[in-house]
Amino acid sequence: MNTETLPQETHIGRTALRVSELTEMAEFYRDVVGLSVLSHADTTAVLGVEETPLLVLEHDPDALSRHQSGAGLFHNAFRVPSREALGDALARIREHWQLGGASDHGVSEALYLTDPEGNGIEIYRDYPREDWPLGDGGRVRMGTYPLDLESVEAVAAGKSGLPAGTDVGHVHLEVSSLEVFSDFYVDTIGFDVQTEVPAALFIGAGGYHHHIGANTWNHRSTPAGGTGLSWFEVVLHDTETLDEVHERAADSQYTVTETGDGIAVTGPDGIKVRFRV
Protein backbone atom coordinates (compact mmCIF):
# COMPACT_ATOMS: atom_id res chain seq x y z
CA MET A 1 0.00 0.00 0.00
CA ASN A 2 1.24 3.47 -0.86
CA THR A 3 1.99 5.67 2.14
CA GLU A 4 2.72 8.79 0.05
CA THR A 5 -0.23 11.14 -0.21
CA LEU A 6 -0.58 13.92 -2.74
CA PRO A 7 0.19 17.47 -1.53
CA GLN A 8 -2.48 20.07 -0.80
CA GLU A 9 -1.80 22.03 -4.00
CA THR A 10 -3.00 19.11 -6.16
CA HIS A 11 -6.06 19.97 -8.27
CA ILE A 12 -7.97 19.00 -11.39
CA GLY A 13 -6.89 20.67 -14.62
CA ARG A 14 -8.65 20.11 -17.94
CA THR A 15 -11.16 17.45 -18.85
CA ALA A 16 -11.75 16.20 -22.39
CA LEU A 17 -14.91 14.87 -23.99
CA ARG A 18 -15.15 12.83 -27.16
CA VAL A 19 -18.13 14.30 -29.02
CA SER A 20 -20.05 13.53 -32.20
CA GLU A 21 -21.28 17.11 -32.81
CA LEU A 22 -18.43 19.55 -32.19
CA THR A 23 -20.09 22.88 -33.00
CA GLU A 24 -23.33 22.10 -31.16
CA MET A 25 -21.43 21.01 -28.06
CA ALA A 26 -19.13 24.05 -28.13
CA GLU A 27 -22.16 26.36 -28.37
CA PHE A 28 -23.87 24.55 -25.49
CA TYR A 29 -20.89 24.90 -23.16
CA ARG A 30 -20.59 28.56 -24.18
CA ASP A 31 -24.25 29.61 -23.93
CA VAL A 32 -25.55 27.39 -21.12
CA VAL A 33 -22.54 26.59 -18.95
CA GLY A 34 -20.88 29.96 -19.61
CA LEU A 35 -17.40 28.96 -20.76
CA SER A 36 -15.57 31.01 -23.41
CA VAL A 37 -14.47 29.38 -26.66
CA LEU A 38 -10.69 29.78 -26.63
CA SER A 39 -10.08 27.94 -29.92
CA HIS A 40 -12.17 26.05 -32.46
CA ALA A 41 -10.71 23.91 -35.24
CA ASP A 42 -12.02 21.08 -37.42
CA THR A 43 -11.37 18.37 -34.86
CA THR A 44 -11.12 20.13 -31.48
CA ALA A 45 -12.54 23.00 -29.51
CA VAL A 46 -11.05 24.33 -26.29
CA LEU A 47 -13.21 26.21 -23.81
CA GLY A 48 -12.29 27.90 -20.57
CA VAL A 49 -12.40 31.05 -18.48
CA GLU A 50 -10.30 34.05 -19.49
CA GLU A 51 -7.15 32.37 -20.87
CA THR A 52 -7.38 29.21 -18.76
CA PRO A 53 -8.49 26.09 -20.67
CA LEU A 54 -10.87 23.86 -18.71
CA LEU A 55 -12.68 21.72 -21.29
CA VAL A 56 -11.39 20.10 -24.50
CA LEU A 57 -13.92 18.79 -27.02
CA GLU A 58 -12.52 16.16 -29.39
CA HIS A 59 -14.59 15.61 -32.52
CA ASP A 60 -15.10 11.96 -33.47
CA PRO A 61 -18.12 11.69 -35.78
CA ASP A 62 -17.64 7.91 -36.02
CA ALA A 63 -17.63 7.31 -32.27
CA LEU A 64 -20.49 5.16 -31.10
CA SER A 65 -22.74 6.56 -28.43
CA ARG A 66 -21.46 5.53 -25.02
CA HIS A 67 -22.69 2.02 -24.31
CA GLN A 68 -25.30 1.66 -21.60
CA SER A 69 -23.00 -0.58 -19.56
CA GLY A 70 -19.80 1.40 -20.14
CA ALA A 71 -17.81 3.11 -17.41
CA GLY A 72 -16.83 6.75 -17.82
CA LEU A 73 -18.10 10.16 -16.80
CA PHE A 74 -20.86 10.76 -14.26
CA HIS A 75 -20.27 14.50 -14.33
CA ASN A 76 -17.72 17.24 -14.85
CA ALA A 77 -17.96 19.74 -12.00
CA PHE A 78 -17.21 23.40 -12.68
CA ARG A 79 -16.54 25.30 -9.45
CA VAL A 80 -17.46 28.99 -9.36
CA PRO A 81 -15.94 31.44 -6.87
CA SER A 82 -19.14 33.01 -5.51
CA ARG A 83 -22.83 32.48 -4.85
CA GLU A 84 -23.54 35.33 -7.29
CA ALA A 85 -21.86 33.32 -10.05
CA LEU A 86 -23.94 30.29 -9.09
CA GLY A 87 -27.05 32.46 -9.37
CA ASP A 88 -25.98 33.57 -12.85
CA ALA A 89 -25.45 29.93 -13.84
CA LEU A 90 -28.94 29.04 -12.64
CA ALA A 91 -30.43 31.91 -14.64
CA ARG A 92 -28.58 30.76 -17.80
CA ILE A 93 -29.74 27.17 -17.36
CA ARG A 94 -33.33 28.22 -16.84
CA GLU A 95 -33.24 30.52 -19.88
CA HIS A 96 -31.47 28.21 -22.34
CA TRP A 97 -31.78 24.64 -21.05
CA GLN A 98 -33.27 22.47 -18.32
CA LEU A 99 -32.09 22.08 -14.74
CA GLY A 100 -31.70 18.44 -13.83
CA GLY A 101 -31.36 18.84 -10.09
CA ALA A 102 -29.91 20.89 -7.24
CA SER A 103 -28.49 20.03 -3.82
CA ASP A 104 -26.89 21.49 -0.73
CA HIS A 105 -24.08 19.07 0.18
CA GLY A 106 -23.04 20.71 3.43
CA VAL A 107 -19.70 21.62 1.84
CA SER A 108 -21.13 23.16 -1.33
CA GLU A 109 -24.22 24.28 -3.24
CA ALA A 110 -24.64 22.48 -6.55
CA LEU A 111 -26.67 22.65 -9.74
CA TYR A 112 -26.95 19.65 -12.08
CA LEU A 113 -27.72 19.33 -15.78
CA THR A 114 -26.94 17.10 -18.76
CA ASP A 115 -25.36 18.21 -22.04
CA PRO A 116 -26.82 17.37 -25.50
CA GLU A 117 -24.78 14.15 -25.72
CA GLY A 118 -25.71 12.86 -22.29
CA ASN A 119 -22.68 13.95 -20.24
CA GLY A 120 -23.46 15.06 -16.71
CA ILE A 121 -22.47 18.54 -15.52
CA GLU A 122 -22.32 20.04 -12.05
CA ILE A 123 -21.85 23.76 -11.42
CA TYR A 124 -21.14 24.46 -7.77
CA ARG A 125 -19.66 26.80 -5.23
CA ASP A 126 -17.95 25.77 -2.01
CA TYR A 127 -18.86 26.98 1.43
CA PRO A 128 -15.89 28.42 3.36
CA ARG A 129 -13.59 25.53 4.21
CA GLU A 130 -13.76 26.22 7.94
CA ASP A 131 -17.52 25.57 7.80
CA TRP A 132 -17.26 22.08 6.28
CA PRO A 133 -18.64 19.44 8.66
CA LEU A 134 -16.13 16.83 9.76
CA GLY A 135 -16.78 13.22 10.66
CA ASP A 136 -14.70 10.42 12.14
CA GLY A 137 -10.96 10.83 11.84
CA GLY A 138 -11.25 14.38 10.55
CA ARG A 139 -12.73 13.33 7.23
CA VAL A 140 -15.01 15.81 5.51
CA ARG A 141 -18.66 14.79 5.85
CA MET A 142 -20.90 15.44 2.85
CA GLY A 143 -24.66 15.06 2.68
CA THR A 144 -27.47 15.76 0.23
CA TYR A 145 -30.09 18.30 1.27
CA PRO A 146 -32.59 20.54 -0.57
CA LEU A 147 -31.16 23.70 -2.10
CA ASP A 148 -33.17 26.93 -1.95
CA LEU A 149 -33.05 27.83 -5.64
CA GLU A 150 -34.94 31.07 -5.25
CA SER A 151 -32.35 32.46 -2.83
CA VAL A 152 -29.58 31.41 -5.24
CA GLU A 153 -31.16 33.11 -8.23
CA ALA A 154 -31.96 36.19 -6.14
CA VAL A 155 -28.24 36.99 -5.79
CA ALA A 156 -27.46 36.63 -9.50
CA ALA A 157 -25.38 39.49 -10.85
CA GLY A 158 -26.61 39.22 -14.44
CA LYS A 159 -23.31 38.03 -15.92
CA SER A 160 -23.56 35.96 -19.10
CA GLY A 161 -20.44 33.86 -18.56
CA LEU A 162 -18.44 32.14 -15.86
CA PRO A 163 -16.19 34.56 -13.95
CA ALA A 164 -12.43 34.55 -13.39
CA GLY A 165 -11.53 32.02 -10.74
CA THR A 166 -13.81 29.31 -12.11
CA ASP A 167 -12.10 25.92 -12.43
CA VAL A 168 -12.86 22.21 -12.62
CA GLY A 169 -13.30 21.47 -8.93
CA HIS A 170 -13.76 17.74 -9.37
CA VAL A 171 -14.57 14.94 -11.75
CA HIS A 172 -17.10 12.25 -10.86
CA LEU A 173 -16.71 8.87 -12.56
CA GLU A 174 -18.91 5.84 -13.10
CA VAL A 175 -16.81 2.73 -12.43
CA SER A 176 -17.30 -1.02 -12.32
CA SER A 177 -15.59 -1.53 -8.94
CA LEU A 178 -14.97 0.89 -6.07
CA GLU A 179 -12.33 -1.47 -4.69
CA VAL A 180 -10.33 -1.36 -7.92
CA PHE A 181 -10.85 2.40 -8.17
CA SER A 182 -9.50 2.84 -4.62
CA ASP A 183 -6.54 0.52 -5.22
CA PHE A 184 -5.41 2.77 -8.06
CA TYR A 185 -6.34 6.34 -7.08
CA VAL A 186 -5.75 6.00 -3.31
CA ASP A 187 -3.18 3.23 -2.79
CA THR A 188 -1.12 3.87 -5.94
CA ILE A 189 -1.59 7.53 -6.86
CA GLY A 190 -1.95 8.95 -3.35
CA PHE A 191 -5.38 10.57 -2.96
CA ASP A 192 -7.08 10.35 0.45
CA VAL A 193 -10.56 8.97 1.06
CA GLN A 194 -12.82 11.74 2.35
CA THR A 195 -16.37 10.41 2.24
CA GLU A 196 -17.94 7.00 1.66
CA VAL A 197 -21.65 6.60 0.98
CA PRO A 198 -23.55 3.55 -0.32
CA ALA A 199 -21.93 2.53 -3.64
CA ALA A 200 -19.86 5.73 -3.91
CA LEU A 201 -16.45 6.98 -2.82
CA PHE A 202 -15.11 10.54 -2.73
CA ILE A 203 -11.36 11.17 -2.63
CA GLY A 204 -9.26 14.33 -2.45
CA ALA A 205 -5.83 15.77 -1.76
CA GLY A 206 -4.92 18.15 1.03
CA GLY A 207 -8.23 17.76 2.86
CA TYR A 208 -10.41 18.92 -0.08
CA HIS A 209 -13.87 17.33 0.06
CA HIS A 210 -13.23 15.58 -3.25
CA HIS A 211 -11.20 15.99 -6.40
CA ILE A 212 -12.54 12.70 -7.78
CA GLY A 213 -15.80 10.93 -7.07
CA ALA A 214 -16.71 7.42 -8.17
CA ASN A 215 -19.91 5.43 -8.01
CA THR A 216 -21.39 2.11 -9.09
CA TRP A 217 -25.02 3.29 -8.91
CA ASN A 218 -25.76 2.38 -12.54
CA HIS A 219 -23.86 -0.94 -12.43
CA ARG A 220 -21.40 -0.18 -15.21
CA SER A 221 -19.64 -3.36 -16.28
CA THR A 222 -17.60 -2.65 -19.43
CA PRO A 223 -14.65 -0.30 -20.08
CA ALA A 224 -15.08 3.32 -21.14
CA GLY A 225 -15.59 3.79 -24.87
CA GLY A 226 -17.50 5.75 -27.48
CA THR A 227 -18.56 9.33 -26.86
CA GLY A 228 -18.09 10.84 -23.42
CA LEU A 229 -14.99 11.14 -21.27
CA SER A 230 -11.74 11.00 -23.25
CA TRP A 231 -9.39 11.92 -20.39
CA PHE A 232 -9.04 14.18 -17.38
CA GLU A 233 -6.04 15.86 -15.86
CA VAL A 234 -4.55 16.02 -12.36
CA VAL A 235 -2.21 18.97 -11.84
CA LEU A 236 0.63 18.42 -9.38
CA HIS A 237 2.67 20.95 -7.44
CA ASP A 238 6.21 20.12 -8.61
CA THR A 239 8.29 17.82 -10.78
CA GLU A 240 9.35 15.77 -7.75
CA THR A 241 5.73 14.82 -7.07
CA LEU A 242 5.19 14.04 -10.76
CA ASP A 243 8.26 11.78 -10.75
CA GLU A 244 6.95 9.97 -7.67
CA VAL A 245 3.52 9.45 -9.24
CA HIS A 246 5.20 8.28 -12.46
CA GLU A 247 7.26 5.73 -10.54
CA ARG A 248 4.28 4.39 -8.58
CA ALA A 249 2.07 4.19 -11.69
CA ALA A 250 4.82 2.44 -13.65
CA ASP A 251 4.96 -0.22 -10.91
CA SER A 252 1.21 -0.84 -11.25
CA GLN A 253 -0.61 -3.02 -13.76
CA TYR A 254 -1.67 0.00 -15.82
CA THR A 255 -0.14 1.41 -18.99
CA VAL A 256 1.85 4.64 -18.61
CA THR A 257 2.80 6.84 -21.56
CA GLU A 258 4.70 10.11 -21.64
CA THR A 259 2.97 13.25 -22.91
CA GLY A 260 4.47 16.57 -23.90
CA ASP A 261 4.13 17.91 -20.35
CA GLY A 262 3.78 14.86 -18.12
CA ILE A 263 2.35 11.36 -18.22
CA ALA A 264 -0.92 9.63 -19.08
CA VAL A 265 -2.12 6.48 -17.36
CA THR A 266 -4.90 4.30 -18.70
CA GLY A 267 -6.33 3.29 -15.35
CA PRO A 268 -9.25 1.17 -14.15
CA ASP A 269 -12.12 0.72 -16.61
CA GLY A 270 -9.95 2.11 -19.42
CA ILE A 271 -10.35 5.66 -18.08
CA LYS A 272 -7.35 7.78 -19.01
CA VAL A 273 -5.95 10.23 -16.48
CA ARG A 274 -3.11 12.65 -17.23
CA PHE A 275 -0.67 14.10 -14.72
CA ARG A 276 1.38 17.26 -15.18
CA VAL A 277 2.98 20.01 -13.14
Results as ranks from 00 to 15, higher is better:
Leu173Gly: 00
Arg274Cys: 07
Ala41Lys: 14
Asp269Asn: 11
Thr3Phe: 12
Ser230Arg: 09
Gly267His: 00
Val19Phe: 02
Trp97Val: 10
Val186Ala: 06
His170Glu: 11
Ala26Pro: 00
Thr52Gln: 13
Pro53Trp: 03
Trp231Pro: 00
Ser230Phe: 00
Glu84Cys: 10
Ala214Asp: 02
Val33Met: 02
Ala26Trp: 01
Glu196Arg: 13
Ala77Val: 06
Leu149Tyr: 11
Leu90Phe: 09
Leu64Ser: 14
Val33Gln: 03
Leu35Ile: 07
Ala91Met: 13
Arg129Ser: 15
Val56Ser: 01
His75Cys: 08
Ala85Met: 09
Leu242Arg: 01
Glu109Cys: 11
Glu150Ala: 15
Ile203His: 01
Tyr254Leu: 04
Ile93Thr: 04
Ala71Cys: 15
Val265Ala: 03
Leu201Thr: 08
Glu58Gly: 02
His237Asp: 15
Gly143Met: 12
Leu111Lys: 02
Arg248Pro: 03
Ser160Gly: 11
Glu174Leu: 05
Val56Glu: 09
Val256Asp: 00
Thr255Met: 09
Gly106Trp: 05
Ser252Phe: 05
Ala16Gly: 04
Gly106Thr: 07
Val277Phe: 02
Ala41Glu: 15
Asp88Ala: 07
Asn218Val: 10
Leu229Met: 08
Ile12Glu: 02
Val273Pro: 00
Gln194Tyr: 07
Arg248Lys: 12
Met25Thr: 09
Asp131His: 14
Asp192Cys: 13
Val168Cys: 05
Thr52Val: 13
Leu22Ser: 04
Thr239Cys: 02
Gly106Arg: 03
Thr43Asp: 15
Val197Ser: 11
Pro146Asn: 10
Glu117Phe: 05
Val186Lys: 04
Glu130Lys: 13
Trp217Leu: 01
Ala224His: 02
Ala41Met: 12
Ala41Cys: 08
Tyr127Phe: 15
Arg141Asp: 14
Ala85Val: 06
Val32Met: 04
Phe275Thr: 02
Arg14Trp: 01
Gly138Asp: 13
Gln98Lys: 15
Gly165Tyr: 04
Phe74Gly: 03
Tyr127Thr: 12
Tyr29Ala: 02
Thr239Leu: 08
Glu9Gly: 12
Val175Gly: 00
Ser221Leu: 05
Gly137Ile: 08
Pro7Lys: 05
Thr43Trp: 11
His96Val: 09
Thr241Ser: 07
Leu162Arg: 03
Glu122Lys: 09
Asn218Phe: 12
Glu4Pro: 02
Leu22Gln: 05
Thr23Asn: 14
Ser221Gln: 06
Phe191Tyr: 12
Gly137Gln: 09
Trp231Gly: 00
Leu134Lys: 15
Ser160Met: 08
Met142Gln: 08
Gly13Arg: 02
Ala205Val: 06
Thr222Trp: 00
Glu109Asp: 14
Thr239Pro: 00
Ala71Pro: 01
Thr10Ser: 08
Gly207Glu: 07
Gly267Trp: 01
Gly137Arg: 09
Ser177Pro: 01
Pro163Ser: 10
Phe184Gln: 01
Leu99Met: 11
Val235Lys: 08
Glu50Ala: 15
Ser108Val: 11
Gly120Ile: 05
